[in-house]
Design a protein around this nucleic acid. Structure first.
Lengths: 141, 141
DNA sequence: CTGCCACTTCAAGCCAACTTGAGGTCAAGC
DNA sequence: GCTTGACCTCAAGTTGGCTTGAAGTGGCAG
């Protein structure tokens, strides 16, 4: 069994050792044993880290990510919850698409003030149209 | 001219007054005057807040967002920078799409361990393939 | 056997993005 | 003309996600 030192994982994944320890603490990854004091990570951890990176980039908190992928590293939840997460992400994709298109439009639109440009307004309107829950703004307390 | 009280803006946008003041402080939005002590916001601020929300959901910091949209509220940057931002977002959309598809696949795949499932691995691999800059992980100091 | 150096723990620090709280102001309705 | 309540300021607190620093440990090359 070829296990990995924290430094190797760091090098291979681009994640700093301190962050890796933090992730282990938070239950997102797990080392299988110790070699002396040193954590030994199974190679799968690299895949898990990729998933974690994806989740972060999706705007999920580490806690949400931890909930999304079980201790074993692979997604491990009731199917309908997974689907709900997927839909959440889908909504976000739509928002991002609108933002991307808005920026692209602005980069090409010759109008003096974008606020007046109907295309601009339509694009922006198009954004928020999706129910708008996620973990944002006005839902707390 | 019908200007808006901070409370009205809050109600209409779903952003708390404290956050609005914070945004003003940070230069993301601007009030046009005061009525007594009270900030008076132009209606455009609602559109700006939508753009800000989009930017946040895209994972940009407030500072980046402030840089993306000029004081006037509309995007206001050299075209190639706007295009670069748009491409950045595009990359993120690809990542999110991969994550969404991964979750959906897992929700439907009957394999006992996803780590073994080739479809799963392919989906995950598909994610990171895009150069991977953005403001993530291994770029700091 | 001796160092070296990559690791270890633990506490404290840091940044972003807000929120909370105390104490104050002021225009509008009664 | 007084109260009320939505606003104000400013300082401090909170949360998430790490990083940094000090002090210690232990496998392995020489």
């Amino acid at each position: 069994m070829k296990f990995l030192d924290i430094g190797e994982v760091a090098a291979l994944s681009g994640t700093k050792p301190s962050a890796l320890r933090y992730y282990e603490e938070a239950g997102l990854i797990a080392s299988v044993s110790r070699h002396g004091l040193r954590r030994q990570f199974p190679p799968e951890v690299l895949l898990q880290l990729k998933l974690i990176a994806m989740g972060k980039s999706a705007g999920f908190t580490l806690e949400e990510i931890a909930g999304m992928f079980g201790d074993n590293g692979a997604p491990d939840l009731p199917r309908d919850i997974l689907r709900e997460k997927a839909n959440q992400i889908d909504r976000q994709i739509h928002e991002l698409t609108a933002l991307r298109d808005t920026l692209r439009h602005v980069a090409d639109c010759p109008a003096p003030s974008h606020m007046e440009c109907p295309t601009f307004r339509r694009l922006v309107d198009l954004a928020g149209k999706r129910g708008g829950k996620h973990k944002s703004s006005a839902t707390r307390k």
